[in-house]
């Protein structure tokens, strides 16, 4: 007989693990990331690679400094942060800026708070905002897409794809209200951040996560609603000044935010009603910053502001206790 310690039930486990969840999210992000490489070519690949490598190195260094298991650097969280940050950067971002942003995100965005699970803000968005403030020129220099031609002679890679001579172009966000062709937006054939262009692939990845039970549908739905509804109302009142709801949804980082950034489990509320409020708040703030604020894109700011609200939301918007009459009774009671 082996030694038996008094251990509390349950004596079985579902087998899920944090690492498992992280890699599933990475998997769901991959199609959109690879599509970005297809659209923008080698510069995009450089940004992705430099982000991933620098994030892993920063994570490893932090773990070493804290005397933790260095294998934990491979738990997928640093990889996910790197991937999200890279996908929200323009493909033409110099590699050292991307690396700097990633190191910042992992160390000051996550590890200084005690590592995975303790950070109040989404690390990738923290890195994104820091870069936007420190390197405004590089972070708003959008490379035009340069899709490789697939013809009779095989795949023809043009110079822009290889990163030799990129052409800048305006992103649809710069003049959202003149936009009419939303099919191009949905498919992603436009300038923009390297992983944010194809709303369709991102949404597919998101649906995959919902199907696997990794995320719940409340935050994506509420964010989409919170962005779409005010945008549509404003557009109906004044079509020349305000872009349509569809244009808002399909451009910039809105879809990536809805399915991957706002749903970051560490920094979002846990109860269904809290998640609905959080998502709707993100959506509304994105619209406000884009339409009224001075920045063309508001995803990062919106998510960070709502991250700050998460503890309060979690404290007040708890689920209803089984059989309880009303929420108010219960918050007062006990």
């Amino acid at each position: 007989m082996s030694k038996i310690n008094p251990i509390a039930a349950p004596h079985t486990h579902s087998g899920t693990s944090t690492t498992n969840i992280m890699y599933l999210v990475v998997l769901a992000l991959l199609p959109a990331a690879l599509y970005g490489v297809y659209l923008f070519g080698l510069p995009a690949l450089t940004v992705l690679a430099s982000c991933i490598v620098s994030a892993l190195i920063a994570e490893l260094a932090c773990l070493q400094l804290q005397g933790k298991r260095s294998l934990a650097a491979l738990d997928g969280s640093a990889l996910l942060t790197a991937l999200l940050l890279a996908m929200s950067l323009p493909a033409s971002t110099p590699w050292w800026i991307a690396s700097f942003g990633c190191c910042f995100a992992v160390t000051l965005g996550k590890q200084v708070y005690g590592g995975l699970g303790h950070n109040p803000f989404n690390p990738a968005m923290l890195g994104r905002v820091m870069l936007l403030i420190c390197f405004p020129v590089e972070l708003t220099n959008w490379q035009a897409i340069s899709v490789p031609d697939i013809g009779a002679q095989g795949i023809m890679l043009n110079q822009a794809w290889l990163g030799i001579d990129g052409i800048s172009a305006a992103t649809p966000l710069a003049n959202l209200n003149q936009l009419t062709n939303w099919q191009d937006l949905a498919l992603g054939k436009h300038a923009g951040s390297l992983g944010e262009t194809s709303a369709l692939l991102i949404a597919l990845g998101g649906v995959f996560l919902i199907w696997r039970g990794i995320i719940r549908p409340y935050i994506p739905l509420a964010l989409i609603g919170g962005l779409f509804v005010p945008a549509t109302i404003a557009h109906m009142l004044s079509p020349n000044d305000y872009a349509s709801g569809i244009a808002h949804l399909l451009s910039g980082g809105a879809m990536l935010a809805a399915f991957f950034i706002a749903t970051d489990m560490v920094t979002s509320p846990t109860s269904p009603r809290g998640q609905l409020l959080f998502g709707a708040g993100c959506g509304l703030l994105i619209w406000l910053i884009r339409s009224v604020g001075s920045y063309p894109e508001g995803v990062a700011f919106a998510v960070l502001i709502m991250n700050a609200c998460t503890p309060v939301i979690d404290h007040y918007l708890r689920p209803k206790i089984f059989g309880a009459q009303s929420l108010f009774k219960r918050n007062k009671g006990v």
Partner: peptide, 25 residues
């Protein structure tokens, strides 16, 4: 069958909130 693993820090994934039959956190 016990499938015991060492516990890690909470990542606030909310799975426990989702499965709690009493509606607790």
């Amino acid at each position: 069958k016990i499938n015991h693993r060492n516990s890690q820090d909470c990542v606030r994934c909310g799975n426990c909130v989702k499965v709690c039959p009493m509606g607790l956190m």
